Simulated assay, not measured.
Amino acid sequence: MKKILLLLAEGFEFFEASVYIDVFGWNLIDGDGNTQLYTCALKREVNSTFNQKVIVDFLVDEIKIEEYAAIAIPGGFEEYGFYSDAFDPRFVAVIKKFYEEKKIISSICTGAFPIAKSGILNGKNGTTYNLNPVRQQMLKDLGVNVINQPIVESDQITTSWNPSTALDVAFKLLRDLTGEENTVSVKTKMGF
C-alpha cells in the first residue's frame, strides 16, 4: 500500500485538497486499490479557506516519513492565515524531509510556497498562482525560477499555477504512483 500525506495549512483551499482525496479515494475503491491518503497539519482541527473545519488524521510530529510515498500540498488564501502555517518551521521541515528521502512532492497553486520556503526549489523551476503578479514575484523572491505554465516539474517536485490545474496535478500524482494504465482506468471510471 502506497501512502500519501495530504499536508494542510490553516486556510488551505478545500477544492485543491478535495481533488487529491477524490482521486486517491477512487483509486482505492475502483483502481488498483494500492493507495491510501492521510491528512496532516500542525493542529488537529484546521480551518480551510472560507472557514470549513477539518479534523486531520495526524499532527506533523506524529508522522513517520519513511511510511509515505508522496506528499500533497494544496494552496490557500492569505486572508485565512495560510502563510502562518505554510511558513511555520515544522510545516516546512516535513516537506524538506520528504525531499531528502527522495519522495514525490505534489502541490497546487500557492502550495508551492512552503516548498520554496524549505529551500528545495532554490534555483529550480516552479510556478504558482498566475493571475496576480505579486504571487509569482513572491515565489521568485524565495529563489525559484518561475515558469509561466500550468504545471512545472523539477526533480520529484510538481508545482502548478491555480485551481484549474488541480485535477491534472492529482492525476499526475496517481500516474507517478500507480502507472499510466491504472490512471486512465480511474479517470474513465470518474467520467473523465
Rank of each mutant, 00 (worst) to 15 (best):
S154P: 08
I151M: 07
Y83N: 09
V60E: 02
N125E: 15
T35K: 04
K187C: 04
P114S: 09
E45Q: 14
L131D: 06
F77C: 05
I29W: 13
S185V: 00
A112M: 11
I104G: 00
G111E: 05
S164C: 02
A166L: 09
P150C: 04
R44V: 05
I157A: 06
L6T: 03
K97G: 02
G33N: 11
N122Q: 11
K102P: 00
L177T: 07
N148L: 10
Q36N: 12
I55K: 14
T49G: 11
Y68T: 02
E180K: 14
Q137H: 08
D168Q: 13
V19C: 08
G81Y: 03
L8Y: 01
S118F: 09
T39D: 05
T110I: 05
R90G: 00
D85T: 10
G25M: 11
L37H: 08
S18F: 01
F98H: 06
D57V: 10
E101G: 00
Y80W: 13
S18V: 12
F12T: 10
K103Y: 13
T49W: 00
Y129Q: 00
G111R: 09
M1C: 01
V46L: 06
V146P: 05
G11D: 06
A41L: 07
E78G: 01
L5K: 07
G126V: 09
D85R: 06
K3M: 05
A9N: 08
L7G: 10
L8S: 03
K43W: 02
N34T: 10
Q136Y: 01
V169C: 03
F24C: 07
Y99L: 00
E180V: 12
L28E: 14
G76D: 06
S164Y: 10
S106P: 07
K189A: 12
F192Y: 15
L5Y: 08
L42V: 11
F14D: 14
K124G: 00
E100L: 13
R90F: 00
L142Y: 12
E180P: 02
N27A: 07
P114T: 11
L59F: 09
T165M: 11
E181S: 14
I108E: 01
I108L: 04
N132G: 00
A17R: 01
K96W: 06
M1K: 12
E10Y: 04
G123F: 08
V56P: 02
V184W: 05
F91C: 03
Q36S: 12
F50K: 13
L131C: 03
Q52K: 14
K64E: 14
D30M: 13
A170T: 04
T158S: 01
F50T: 12
A86C: 09
V56E: 01
P114Q: 08
R135N: 12
D85C: 06
Y83D: 10
I157H: 08
S118N: 11
G126I: 06
T35A: 04
Y68L: 06
E10D: 11
R90N: 13
I151T: 09
P74W: 04
E66W: 02
G123K: 11
L139P: 03
L142F: 14
K187A: 15
S185H: 13
Q36E: 14
K140Y: 01
A93E: 15
Q156L: 15
D57K: 09
Y80L: 05
R90L: 10
A72D: 06
